[in-house]
């Protein structure tokens, strides 16, 4: 099976500061991967490079054999860690926009999920609560039949009930043949859904293993291992 994401020798520097240092990574289809690390470890930088929001200093990134560009963006569904929709838009016009630009967008799925949350498509995004804004963005992202989903801190800043909803939505809506990368600090919440974990520290990959192997080898949960590895 060919790799969905192939990263070789990836470097990113901001002036003298190295954000990513010689990252090598291969991700196959059909996996849910946790991208874990403390603040400043390089998670968001790595994600932005994969999504085409940043240019690397060196190295290569291939998404399903395509270099980062229009073809890779067409198969990557990205949820950033902030509200990125125009808040003067209505929820309905956000759906129309995704339908207009993405051939793989499933409008019916999005409408069903919105309906289950009792969110009226005529509501403007700025009138929604923070939690509902996050949910709307997540619904738009997960309603695409993408090959690679990348979610940056999807459950940060929302209440536990909303976190459960978000994780259920993620698991029930992503394509089984796709892969999903979740960057998060809230490891205990996402650990039950992960297949593999990548630990990033100071721009380097410290660990990349299946979750079960981590638990067996270390005799502890990924959350406990994270706290130990990144103890201040």
């Amino acid at each position: 099976m060919s790799n969905l994401l192939e990263i070789q020798g990836l470097h990113k520097k901001y002036g003298k500061k190295t954000a990513l240092n010689d990252i090598n990574l291969s991700i196959e289809p059909g996996h849910i991967i946790g991208l874990l690390g403390p603040n400043g470890s390089g998670k968001t930088t790595l994600i932005k490079i994969i999504c085409g929001l940043l240019q690397p200093t060196g190295g290569s990134v291939l998404v399903d054999g395509n270099p980062v560009g229009p073809k890779s963006k067409a198969i990557v569904s990205y949820l950033p860690d902030r509200t990125y929709l125009d808040e003067s838009m209505t929820v309905g016009s956000a759906i129309d926009m995704f339908k207009y630009f993405y051939d793989d967008f499933d409008e019916k799925r999005a409408e069903e999920m919105l309906s289950s949350l009792n969110i009226d498509p005529k509501n403007k995004i700025k009138t929604l609560s923070k939690g509902n804004k996050e949910k709307v963005q997540l619904i738009l992202v997960m309603s695409r039949k993408a090959k690679l989903y990348i979610l940056d801190e999807p459950i940060a800043g929302v209440d536990p009930a909303a976190r459960d909803y978000i994780l259920r939505t993620i698991i029930s809506n992503f394509e089984p043949s796709a892969s999903l990368i979740i960057a998060t600090h809230l490891i205990s919440d996402v650990e039950p859904v992960l297949d593999e974990a990548i630990f990033l520290q100071d721009g380097n990959i410290r660990l990349y293993k299946p979750i079960d192997d981590i638990r067996v080898e270390n005799g502890k949960s990924v959350d406990a291992l994270f706290r130990e590895v990144y103890r201040c």
């Binding site: 229009p70 963006k73 990205y78 950033p80 902030r82 990125y84 929709l85 125009d86 630009f101 993405y102």
Partner: peptide, 19 residues
């Protein structure tokens, strides 16, 4: 400015199009 350099840029530059 808003659609290129502020948070809406996340949406603009992840569309399946060249910069």
């Amino acid at each position: 400015y808003k659609t290129i350099y502020l948070t809406q840029g996340y949406l603009s530059f992840t569309l399946p199009a060249k910069t």
